[in-house]
Design a protein around this nucleic acid. Sequence first.
DNA 1: TTGAAAGCGCTAACAG
DNA 2: CTGTTAGCGCTTTCAA
Lengths: 346, 346
Amino acid sequence: MMTKNKKRPTIIDVAESAGVSISTVSRVLNASAPVDADKTQKVRQAIEELNYQPKAAARILASQRTETIGLLLPLISGEYFAGMLRGVERGAIEGGYDLLIHSTYTDARPNSPYRRVLGEHNTDGLIVFSDSLDGTELQRLCELEFPVVLLHRSSPDVLNIPSVTVENKNGAKQIVDHLIKLHNRRKIVYLRGPEEHEDSHWREVGYRQALDESGILFDPALVGAGNFDNRDAQDALDAMLLDGIEFDAIFAGDDEAASGVLRALRLAGIRVPEDVSVVGFDDSNLAEHLVPALTTVDAQIEQAGYTAAKRLIQLIERGETNLMTLLPTQMVLRRSCGCFYEEVKP
Amino acid sequence: MMTKNKKRPTIIDVAESAGVSISTVSRVLNASAPVDADKTQKVRQAIEELNYQPKAAARILASQRTETIGLLLPLISGEYFAGMLRGVERGAIEGGYDLLIHSTYTDARPNSPYRRVLGEHNTDGLIVFSDSLDGTELQRLCELEFPVVLLHRSSPDVLNIPSVTVENKNGAKQIVDHLIKLHNRRKIVYLRGPEEHEDSHWREVGYRQALDESGILFDPALVGAGNFDNRDAQDALDAMLLDGIEFDAIFAGDDEAASGVLRALRLAGIRVPEDVSVVGFDDSNLAEHLVPALTTVDAQIEQAGYTAAKRLIQLIERGETNLMTLLPTQMVLRRSCGCFYEEVKP
DNA sequence: TTGAAAGCGCTAACAG
DNA sequence: CTGTTAGCGCTTTCAA
């Protein structure tokens, strides 16, 4: 019960112990102005001896900078988020910022008048992933001129918020093209992601464009809801199989869904890639460990997170940054489309 | 109408607009003392109108509580960390705390005198994962009486830091037992995790205990370094195969390593589970999607993270919490050990 | 119940 | 180069 706080040293203690003023201590701490080498040494020593650690809140309050960026996301799961987090964190730390993460889905106090809105008071800026914040909220942040960078989502027309996205459309088009032209597939299933997810939208556009250009009629029956989730994808495919829908390839929307697809096919006794080609999107760590190894599109997940952090820090520190960053994607060929065979020693 | 559109509103603006003192505003904000219903209403309205958000730094500085907990971890990767993060975040938010995460590996300023030590000034307490902080650092935090909870690591003897771990030893023993007794395996490979990782240590102890009790001699040649990493595990197994080491089962250390093992075996043309049984540990999301589906031990990853957050918050708020929390583990039988067969429709 | 006022620990002018 | 001093925006006594 008794948590007696022996008071931690403050900048005043350091100053006294070093025989200088607190400003001088502050200066050596922040290298914000030249300080005599001798005193610098004394201050350093005092800091060491007292085991002094400046208190963030005081610095923040005085300097009006939190040196922290926030990341808003829906639900943390899968290799995808691990990669993204790694990238964002690296970008933040490199820029000298800490990272505060917040899953919108866990907010236990949605309607409290005191609800903490991550960005506006705890951080210098916010990375908003996909649809984890709705339009009105974004607009409000904009009006406050609060630095925001969108990740895997483009800015609402009027708002002009910097965004970092990947070449979903071209990536998708390219890989579907590959299925059509190289593997002679024509009945290609597409499993879309969550409704609101922009990545999913553009991947579908790319898919349809590829079909169009090859003169293949778009067939709504071949589109299912994979939701970027392996279970949902498995279910969606099971349903198609049950309905007797015929297909010779599957573009699963993302790698996670592809994993579910491969499973459904395996359980149905359908061979990949002999009977059906399967491709994903993302090239998450998952992809090359699936069976068969998954042909997919490298969506530079980590790089996207990293870039978003960098952009946000630019925005915070310089007041401006690139309005759009579109990361290129690249096809990664493995076995599941039909391109390679695993070498198995007999 | 407002005349100051430049600065964000402060508690003073709210007070003026509501015709009360800032203390009163603070009171309705924090429900820290009874306030007249009328004034409460006025204050609420003013807050709404001004779109007021209290500033965290000021609250923290004044109240000496950050309402933030920190999570220190090495490298974010894989399903494992996604699960852990989900748990920790849920626990934090439920308790009304924010979560600050910090990967030790990304710290770009390791030797700066101004290096920010996450816990000591930005947070009310710290969850330290595995070996992401060394003994001396832990000791220092202890001396400062800074609240710390260890996750997947037990406390150094003298320090008595609360810890949350899982039943690694029994879990491992049980699953190796299963291999021995149910599947008649006797030459069982163990792939250990990273050197410093305590989970790995106890899993090995469990493994050896199981061998012992069945009168099987421990064979050092059957132990390799999987490092809880699928690539390393694959390499380790490849090396064993190359050396002509014989085995009939593999306890891969964790699911990630098991994934690499399965791959190595597949490429070597060795059938699982017919020729060799394979089991993992963790029951991460990965496990049931491997081919064949992986028999493993449910290590309650998310629950462990959640519990750690809860314990830490208890420690912060009540000054004490359970010194040890040992989460039970449970075997999850799937196909890779030899127990089940996938139903494949012909 | 309410308000006035004293900090919380630090940064950043502003003098010297 | 260095010290003095005025805040940063809030919580929290202490009186009233």
